[in-house]
Simulated scan of single mutants.
Amino acid sequence: MKEHMADWRIHALAFVLTVIAEFIGTKKFSFGPLSFSLFPMLYVLILGAILGIAKMIPQKMMTEASPYIGISVMMLTAKIASTIGPNLGAVVKAGPALILQEFGNLGTAVLALPIAVFVFHMGRAAIGTSFSISRESSLAVVADKYGLDSDEGIGVMGGYITGTVFGTMFNGIFVSLLCSLNIFHPYALGMACGTGSASMLSASLAAVVEAYPDMEAEITAYAATSNMLSSVDGLYMSLFIALPMCEFMYRLFTKNNRHYKDGLPIGAKVKVKAAGEE
């Protein structure tokens, strides 16, 4: 307890930023049949980034704040899970579909990694940002295997932050478009909402519920269950299939590639580890 109380500045700053973001509230934008929402989580991220760029948050505080991500994600997951119970019967019927949709995670590796290597000549950060859609469980996998301060960690954090900033707007607009086309069942749209991170889930789910207000409870249940299962089976899918596949593809793509040497982009800075560090 004494150790955690020493981080009181982190908790105080998080509290202040949260209060500011909640006062701003959720802002909805509509352009004809398309709509999207901006949520308080996005405001906190932007405010924190501004304070970091302005050097108002010491690097030491940023480092000490990293372990709290896991605690926050745990509480968020528990809150989302509480919406599943009332509609458990309907969810069980769609069980196989909810599980099989996780194979869609492999699409990020197949599509994104070649672009990262052949177009942008990225280093191993390409693995972290391409092996999944960079949701909360992806952070945990990379943090455990490589560390969030590694190139892979930088990649997955970049993907997570990009998804939080732009994913909410993209999901809100894209899902609104899909709803207007009437080619997918509302339950399918709800399931798709749950594959993203918490901010993506909130933005896309709001668009689906707005299109089908009379099915709000069922759609929310499917989305919440999908989000939970994506955290569980998605973690194993990422750890045992997607991540090894990205490692193999990265080695294959960088071998005999004139832009790379020893698996790293030519001219890239190599991190020198401190003495005694593994």
Rank of each mutant, 00 (worst) to 15 (best):
P96E: 10
S137T: 10
L189M: 14
Y160N: 10
G89W: 07
I24Y: 15
G234I: 00
V156R: 10
V91M: 13
W8H: 14
G32D: 04
F131Q: 01
G194M: 05
S66C: 06
E216C: 09
L17H: 13
L106V: 09
A221Q: 11
A109W: 00
P114N: 03
F174H: 03
S230I: 03
V209K: 12
C246E: 02
M215K: 12
I57E: 13
S66L: 13
V272N: 15
K145Y: 00
K93I: 02
K55E: 11
A274W: 00
L177R: 00
Q59V: 15
T63W: 06
V117S: 06
G276S: 04
A12D: 05
M56N: 12
S238Y: 03
K60A: 08
K273Y: 05
A192D: 09
Y260N: 01
V209S: 06
G32V: 00
L38K: 11
L45V: 05
G128V: 06
I10Q: 03
K2L: 06
A275F: 01
R251F: 05
I71D: 09
E218L: 15
K269P: 08
R251V: 04
A211S: 15
A274Y: 01
A192Q: 02
D214G: 09
P114H: 06
G70M: 03
E247M: 00
S150K: 04
A12E: 04
G107Y: 06
T164Q: 09
A109P: 02
M61T: 12
G89D: 09
A211W: 02
A188E: 13
S134E: 13
L139S: 05
P186V: 08
I133A: 15
T77Y: 13
P213A: 04
V141M: 12
W8C: 11
